[in-house]
Every structure is written in C-alpha cells, then in structure tokens.
Write a protein that binds this DNA or RNA. Structure first.
Length: 822
DNA sequence: AGCACGCCGACT
DNA sequence: GTCGGCGTGCTC
C-alpha cells in the first residue's frame, strides 16, 4: 500500500465529455494534501480547456508524455469514496469496445444519473465601470444589473451579437465570470437534537432552571422520553416549541444540534414487520433449485435458462436461490422488465427480504435512487432488484444474476451505450465467477438455441405449481365476423363472455396493443391520411380533455383535429383502427354500468398513477382492466376469469424479423394472466390471421413447436441466432443525402470484408420508419458470425461514415447486436 | 462536445 | 473601419 501511496503523483482521468476527439484519459496532478485520500474510481472535478468538468480516475501514473507545463491539478474530489469499483472501470472499457460508444457514455450508464455534476459558467456585473463604453457594452451591463447573474451559454444563445462586446467587458473587468457547480444529488442531511447528559444530571439541572422556563423543561423531557435524540423538526412539531427554546437549552449545554445523514427510503414504514416464509418447493422446483445451487457452488461463471410456463413458480426458485447465495456472503442482482416492475413484484421481494433488498426503478426520485445505489455500493444490502440498468449494481462479491422475462426487448438499451443487459451479465459473471439465470416462459430464440446447443444449461419447470391446466384459449376469426355483418370491435363470442362475466361480478382483462383513440384518420372522398409533418407515420387520434387532437407517437407532435379534410374540404373524414380510448368508449356504450379502468401511457403519465390504478382494480373497484403492453406482465389478480385479446395481429404486422416471436410471446404472456387461482379462466383471442403459426402455437401454448418452426426460418433467412446483426442508421433532412451516407457505409464495409464467408453485407435500404423527426432514414445491415473478428473493421467503418455524416450535417448511428430494425 | 480564435464578406 | 457568420483546432 505504501508504495502505491507514494506513487500517486498523477491521475489518469476520463473526462465526462461525450466526444470521440476527447475519448481518452488525461493526466492531472494530484495535490499533495490529497495523496492519501485519492483512490482509483473516484469522481473528480478537473479543468478542461476553458471549462470545468467531471472526471473519473481510472489509474495512477508517476510520469507522463504530456509536457509538465500542460498538466493541471485536480480541482476537487467529488466523493469521499470511489464511485467506480475496479470491475466497473473494466466494464466501462468493455462497453466501449462492444457497443462502439465513448468512455464517457459508458461511465454514465454505470452510475445513477442524479449524481452527475453539472457545471455552468455564470456572468455577473462586477460593479466596476470603466469610462469608455460603447452602446452595446452599456446595454449588456444594464441587462446584467437589471436581470442579475446570467448563464453564459444561455445569454449568448439569446443574443449572439453580444459575444464580442462581452469579451471586451470581461477584459476591462466590468463583468466577472464565475463557475457554478451543481453537484447533483447528495446525501440528505437532517438536523437532530441530542441530549448531552444522563437522566439524573438532566433532572437535577432542570430543577434548578427558572420557574417560568416551562417550555425548556417540556422540550428536554420530551427528548428524554424519545431516547435522547430526535429530528429537530419532529421535536419542534411535537412540543410546539420554538427555535429559541432549543437555543436556550443548547446554551446551557443540555442538548446539542447535530447534522446526521438520513436515508431517503422509498418504502419508509412498510415491510418492516415479519418476513414472509419460504414456500415448500414442488419436486420440479426443487430440481431447478439444486441445479442452480450446483452452479453457484463452483464459483465459476455459469449460465442457465430456466424455462417455465407462467404460474410454474419461477419466482420462488429465484427467491430461494438468492437467499442461499446471500447466506454464503455473496450478492445477487434481479433484473425485471421495467413494465413488470410493478408494486406486486417489488412487494414480493420486500416481504421476503425486507431491508436486505435495494430497489431501483424509474419511479424513484433521484435522491431515493442515489441512496439505494449507495446502500449497494457500501455493501449494506445483498440484493438489488431493478430494471435494465440495475445490472450495473456496484456489488463487489457478486454471486448470482437473475434476468426474469429474459426475452423482453427492453433489456436492450436504445440509447448509447446500446448495451444488452444479458451481455453485461455475462461479463460480470465471468469477472466474479457468478451464475446467470435467464428465466422465461417463452425464451428468446437466441437463448433457447444456446440451450439446445449445450452452450448454457437448460432447466425446465414443466407444470404450474397448483397443477391447474393452462386456461383454454379460443380463437375468433374476425374476418368471419365481418362477413357476417359484425363490424364491432368485439366479436359476438367476446361480447357474450363480457356480458356473462359482468353478470357474475367477475373481473376481466382486455388487451389492446395500441393507445389513443384511432390509429389513423382517412378522408373517404380523396384518400387523404393525416400524417406527421416530420415523421413517416400516420397521426393517431386522441381525446385530450375531450378535445380531439392528432398526435405522433414517435416525436410527440400534436395538432388539432378538424372536421373537414384539409385537402379537399370533404366532411367525410373519419377514424379508422382502434385504440384503447375508443375501446373504453365502446365498452361504456355497449355495457352501461361496467366499471372500466384504462391503463396506457396516457393514463399512467403522472407519478404513482400506475400503482393507483392497479390497486384500485385489485380492490375490485373495476370490472374491466383495459390496457396496452403494460398489463401483459407480472400482474396477478385472483378475481380475473377472462382475458380478451382484441387484436392479436398488431405486433405480427410489424416490419421486423422478430414480429412472429414477439407476437407469440405477447399472446402467451397475456393468456397467462388468468386462471392462476381457484376460479377457472378463459382466454378469447381475436385475430385476422388465425392460421399464422405464431397464433396457432400461442393458442395451445406450445413453445417448443413454435421454436422449431421459427428457428428454421431464422436459419434459412440468415437471421439471429445464426448471425449477429449490426445496423448502421444514416439520417438526413434530404433523402438523397441520407441514402448516400448509408451507401458510403456499405461501400466501406464491402471493401473491409472483401469475400469473407462469415460476413454478410446487405444493400443500404430505406428504414421501415423512413422519416423521423424531420430526417429521412436509411439502414445498412451487416451480419457476422464472430464479433471479435469484425469489431476493428466495424469501428473503422463507423468512424469513417460518421465523419462523412458530420460534414453534410447528417447523423450516423450504430446499433451493435441490434434487436429491432425499425 | 464546448469553447475560443481567426478569417472573410456585409454593413454603418 | 467594425459586425456577425462560420470553419478550425484544442482540451492533461
């Protein structure tokens, strides 16, 4: 240690500047007085050109190639502990290589967003006024005097012409620049009042107080009753005392005020009681459990697919494996799709493990998130449950990573770094010798294929815990309905079922994968369809506070809906397709008195609304839960006896190679919401493609049959899992330019991989979403057998094409191991 | 990515 | 002459 300490002269620092040009370590001097307190992985504030930015120490050095006069000292340590562990530093490096992102982006993904430092340069009048000032200089000074200090970049954005006169004012000293660092979330500190003497001394001392010091006595006794220390706020509230009373007690040395750190606990006061007991495992569960135990015990990296139908008790296996893992002093991460991270799911973990589990999800405040993260970082908890980014939970003795609903697309991040949580889990498992368990009723083709090839273990839970058969699924051919004159959203069969369930006061779930009112609007006179002005999609009809508006689901553009066709003026303009809003309206019309709870992005936008709606349905305050994707997963309501899938085809018609897989998974998932308890359930599935294999196989819940068919298609069309796919996307305001950029990428790739049989380079083509936010989009797809063999060339192609795109004001992005091609 | 600098055509 | 737009280069 002492040798290392002695050598801490220079720190190699990654700066939080997201640019290729600055994507490397910079050397900074470590001020002498910090040499004992500086560690690898710490966040620091450093000068960077004319700016100050956040940086991360990735190593120490004694000497540097950089001339000594260029090396500047670290300005500040941002934490008193290293935010990044050595493993996370390595992981950030791996993320860059794997997903072709910058180091700054990689590190940002690893840390809770709220803790990032934001530095702004603020201008203020110095009060010193030189004599010779021109008109503009006087104007700026007057502005600053009047409006107070201004953020420099904002000021110059509003008044670009002020750049030069401002520079002169700075030189003359009439205006000052000052850096303001917003440190991001910090520990929450709360003032406590603490008694400074024992009971006897206190009572004695109180006796000797003046007779009229009622309040002081009251406060001191209250504090004594409450264990000698309490939050100052609580004390003042309870005793109705004022600060001056407390100050008087302080003066007499009776109590002292202390700043204490306080945890922002999102589950304050809940789950503190008795822990839920383990359930008795079924023989199949016990076999799964012991298979996982065997892998854990080796302390070597292992992966297993845990495949079990909905209701087969995967979660109980997870819980017991986690418990065993934690008992041996190792830690566990559980990933759940954000959409399935419902209160029900969190409660299950909290009831079992109480405060031993840290929960990370998007509905926490930045402060709560930071505190949960720090409990993990300090090793105070052994378990982290969360969505995708929880895979970065900074544990140092990781033993087990569970990815539930492994097939979910949300495990792939859509922004840089475009990582897949499963791949990050593999990296971490290798580092720690940990076990990865991938759980699903409908595994992704990649994972199921890996199990078939023996690359990962395959554990199967063949039946439901309660031995209840899966609910019968009935297909309704909507084409036949139409032929027989039923133009309603509800088939006659579904209509009857809803009527019957309502009469019996049973609950039901209706699923529709589309929000809004109508999917598009069309003029029957001239064929005009309302489209987004900046994206290549039709606008969706919504009601916002009972006002009809047209909205783009991709960029958020909204416009008022008019009763006449803007092209030909015809009044015969009407809605086609159906969204959740319209279904809700139809339900209320056709089933008067039915209580409908609608759940989609529009009704769950505000904090807590998601939980509120679910709880309300759980308390049977609604008969029908109508919703999109978000009701497909993780929900468990004993009273539900009917699931209606209004159109099973929406996802089937997506122009993506995973359309069939997605459809099968979604239908199986939704059907699984019913009949988990005593009441038998049924599922009614409406479709225009009853003969499609994804639908046929979902109806009988035959994953294996689906897998066999789909894997053959993937093989014959050269899709994953046989090839990995990387997609370059070129975007430009002009269609020709976007195409040219994609073509340029294609050309470069073809030159790099001449006739490599392990690489397939596709022709540049228009993206299915051919225009987005005002830019035309073209794809360039490349497939390969081994990333290791192509990564250098991929990076070169990317940098080349990106540089070209820059020059013409275009965009070029890359998605390594793309999961979706839209 | 920011930010400053410096060049150059368009104005008072 | 100066103003304002934009390309270029640097950041330990």
């Amino acid at each position: 240690v002492s040798v290392q300490q002695a050598r801490r002269y220079l720190a190699e620092v990654i700066v939080d500047v997201n640019a290729r040009e600055t994507d490397r370590a910079y050397h900074y001097a470590i001020p002498e007085e910090w040499r004992e307190r500086v560690f690898i992985g710490m966040r620091v504030l450093v000068p960077f050109g004319p700016r100050r930015v956040e940086g991360y120490i990735v190593s120490f050095a004694q000497e540097s190639e950089t001339p000594a006069d260029k090396i500047r000292p670290i300005l500040r340590l941002l934490d008193d502990y290293p935010a990044l562990t050595p493993e996370l530093i390595e992981l950030s490096e791996w993320l860059c290589e794997r997903y072709l992102c910058t180091r700054a982006q990689a590190v940002q993904a690893l840390l809770p967003g709220g803790m990032r430092l934001r530095s702004t340069l603020v201008l203020e009048a110095s009060g010193k006024i030189p004599q010779a000032l021109d008109r503009q200089e006087r104007e700026i000074l007057a502005y600053l005097d009047h409006q107070g200090p201004q953020v420099k970049t904002e000021l110059l954005n509003h008044h670009p012409s002020w750049r030069r006169p401002l520079a002169r004012l700075l030189e003359k000293g009439a205006v000052r620049e000052r850096y303001v660092e917003q440190t991001g979330v910090k520990e929450k500190r709360v003032t406590y009042a603490v008694l400074k003497m024992d009971k006897e001394t206190l009572l004695e001392k109180l006796d000797r107080l003046q007779a009229n010091a009622f309040k002081q006595k009251e406060v001191a006794l209250w504090l004594l009753q409450h264990g000698g220390s309490a939050r100052l706020r609580d004390l003042l509230a309870a005793t109705k005392a004022s600060r001056s009373t407390v100050a008087a007690l302080r003066q007499r040395g009776i109590l002292e005020l202390e700043q204490r750190e306080e945890r922002r606990n999102p589950y304050e006061g809940r789950f503190s009681g008795e822990r839920e007991k383990k359930l008795v495992l079924t023989p199949a569960q016990a076999r799964a459990y012991s298979a996982i135990m065997d892998m854990l015990k080796t302390r070597q990296a292992h992966t297993a697919l845990l495949q079990g139908v909905t209701g087969s008790g995967k979660t109980e296996v997870y819980l017991q494996a986690i418990e065993a893992c934690v008992q041996t002093g190792r830690q566990a991460i559980v990933l759940v799709p954000e959409i399935a991270l419902t209160p029900q799911m969190v409660e299950r973990f909290k009831r079992r493990f109480g405060d031993e589990v840290a929960v990370l999800h998007s509905r926490l405040s930045p402060g709560e998130r930071y505190d949960e993260w720090r409990r993990i970082r300090r090793g105070e908890v052994g378990i982290a449950v969360g969505a995708r980014s929880a895979v970065f939970a900074p544990f140092e003795r990781l033993g087990l990573i569970i990815i539930d609903e492994e097939h979910e697309l949300s495990y792939k991040q859509e922004e840089n770094p475009k990582y897949h949580a499963r791949e990050v889990a593999y990296f971490r498992a290798l580092y720690h010798g940990a076990t990865v368990v991938l759980g699903s009723a409908t595994p992704s083709l990649e994972v199921r294929f890996a199990a078939a090839k023996g690359r990962i273990s395959h554990i199967v839970l063949p039946e439901r815990v309660n031995q209840r058969a899966l609910p019968p699924v009935e297909i309704v051919d909507m084409r036949a309905e139409l032929r027989q004159g039923n133009r309603s959203i509800f088939s006659r069969r579904l209509y009857e079922a809803i009527t019957e369930k309502l009469a019996r006061r049973e609950q039901m779930i209706l699923f529709l994968n589309r929000r809004g009112y109508a999917t598009f609007i069309l003029c029957r006179a001239c064929g005009y369809v309302a489209r987004c002005p900046s994206c290549d999609v039709s606008l969706t009809y919504h009601y916002l506070n009972s006002l009809p508006i047209l909205r783009c689901h991709y960029c958020g553009h909204a416009e008022e809906a008019v009763g006449r066709c803007p092209e030909c003026g015809s009044p015969h303009i009407r809605n086609f397709g159906t969204g959740t809003q319209k279904v809700e309206e139809e339900l209320l019309r056709q089933f008067p008195g039915a209580r409908v709870i609608r759940m989609d992005v529009d009704t769950t936008a505000t904090k807590g609304s998601h939980e509120r709606l679910l709880r309300s349905f759980g308390r049977r305050e609604g008969d029908i839960l109508l919703g999109t994707q978000m009701i497909a997963k993780g929900l468990d309501f004993p009273g539900v006896t009917l699931v209606g899938i209004l159109t099973a085809d929406t996802s089937l018609n997506l122009p993506d190679f995973r359309a069939a897989e997605r459809t099968f998974q979604l239908l199986t998932q939704v059907a699984g919401r019913v009949g988990r308890h005593e009441a038998p359930g049924e599922v009614i599935l409406q479709t225009y493609h009853p003969e499609h294999y994804a639908i046929q196989d979902a109806v009988v819940q035959d994953y294996e049959r689906f897998f066999q068919k789909e894997i053959q298609i993937r093989r014959s069309l050269d899709y994953p899992p046989f090839w990995e796919m990387t997609v370059f996307t070129a975007a430009h305001e002009l269609q020709e330019e976007a195409f040219r950029l994609a073509k340029e990428t294609e050309r470069w790739l073809r030159r790099s991989f001449a006739d490599d049989p392990d690489v397939i380079i596709h022709e540049a083509t228009a993206a299915p979403l051919s225009r987005l936010q005002g830019r035309y989009r073209f794809h360039q797809v490349i497939k390969y057998k081994s990333y290791r063999k192509v990564k250098k060339e991929l990076l070169a192609a990317y940098l080349h094409a990106r540089a070209k795109a820059r020059k013409v004001d275009g965009m070029l992005t890359v998605d390594v191991n793309a999961q979706m091609v839209l």
